[in-house]
């Protein structure tokens, strides 16, 4: 029973985390690393516990900005990708520009958003959106373009309208690719939200990180990082669940049959 529990796939990452924590602690003791460089694990856990309500409160704000940006990603990214996939003309105009814009470091222009949109949630949402946008577009374009020509011929031979072809063939075919883009995107959206909080905000985990950094409060900083990563993991898993519900037929989900 214990053996099976130890080997269950859900527990494996946690076992690895515990192992890493032990190594972390050992490294600090063996090499006598001072606390102002790297805090001890128990200090971080201590901060997690004592600052729990504040961290929870701030992480909710970061999550809101992340989800806002992610919603924009879905709202704009998927339709833009569809137009790119269906029109060679649009693709030749828009795609190079998208790649170009993607090479601009978001952290460099994030202060500009504060100037434009103030200190509220909006610049954070936009920052999250800009980071998450690109992977969704790239993989959605790939998904729509990879429909077999024979499949489209089949639909045409049945006299399918463009809408029927889209709804019954192209869209379901593209869904696995769209979801793989969304999974990358959600984790990047978390980063984007924090970037937004870094440059101009007085709330959110990014702000906590800034303050902790300024005060040399390393345990709090590490605690904030733990919370931040947890947000990323939880959101990623949420998308994973939606994916399983929506494309149970896909090769990546077949163990469920």
């Amino acid at each position: 029973m214990l053996r099976r529990l130890m080997l269950s796939p859900t527990l494996r990452p946690f076992l690895l985390i515990i192992l890493l924590l032990v190594l972390w602690d050992l490294a600090i003791r063996i090499f006598s690393i001072p606390a102002y460089l790297i805090p001890r694990p128990e200090q971080v856990v201590g901060q997690l516990i004592s600052e729990w309500s504040r961290l929870l409160n701030e992480s909710w704000k970061t999550t809101q900005a992340t989800l806002g940006g992610f919603a924009l990603t879905i709202l704009f990214g998927i339709p833009v990708a569809m137009v790119i996939a269906y029109s060679k003309l649009v693709e030749s105009y828009v795609y190079p520009l998208l790649v170009f814009s993607q090479s601009i470091p978001k952290i460099a222009i994030a202060p500009l958003f504060v100037v434009w949109f103030g200190f509220g949630i909006l610049p954070k949402i936009i920052s999250a959106f800009l980071l998450g946008f690109f992977p969704v577009v790239v993989s959605t374009v790939m998904g729509f373009k990879s429909v077999e020509p024979d499949m489209l011929d089949l639909a045409r031979s049945m006299g399918a309208t463009r809408l029927q072809t889209f709804l019954k063939i192209s869209l379901p075919h593209a869904l696995p690719a769209i979801f793989s883009g969304l999974k990358v995107s959600i984790t990047l959206a978390v980063v984007g939200a924090v970037v937004g909080e870094f440059v101009g905000s007085n709330s959110g985990i990014g702000y906590v990180l800034q303050v902790a950094n300024g005060n040399f409060d390393l345990p709090l900083m590490f605690a904030a990082l733990v919370v931040l990563s947890s947000i990323g993991v939880i959101l990623f898993l949420a998308i994973d669940v939606v994916e399983r519900l929506m494309i149970p037929w896909h090769a990546s989900q077949r163990q469920l049959f």
Partner: peptide, 9 residues
């Protein structure tokens, strides 16, 4: 067609 072109879903 040469391949069955069945929809996987």
């Amino acid at each position: 067609f040469q391949s069955a072109v069945l929809l996987a879903w």
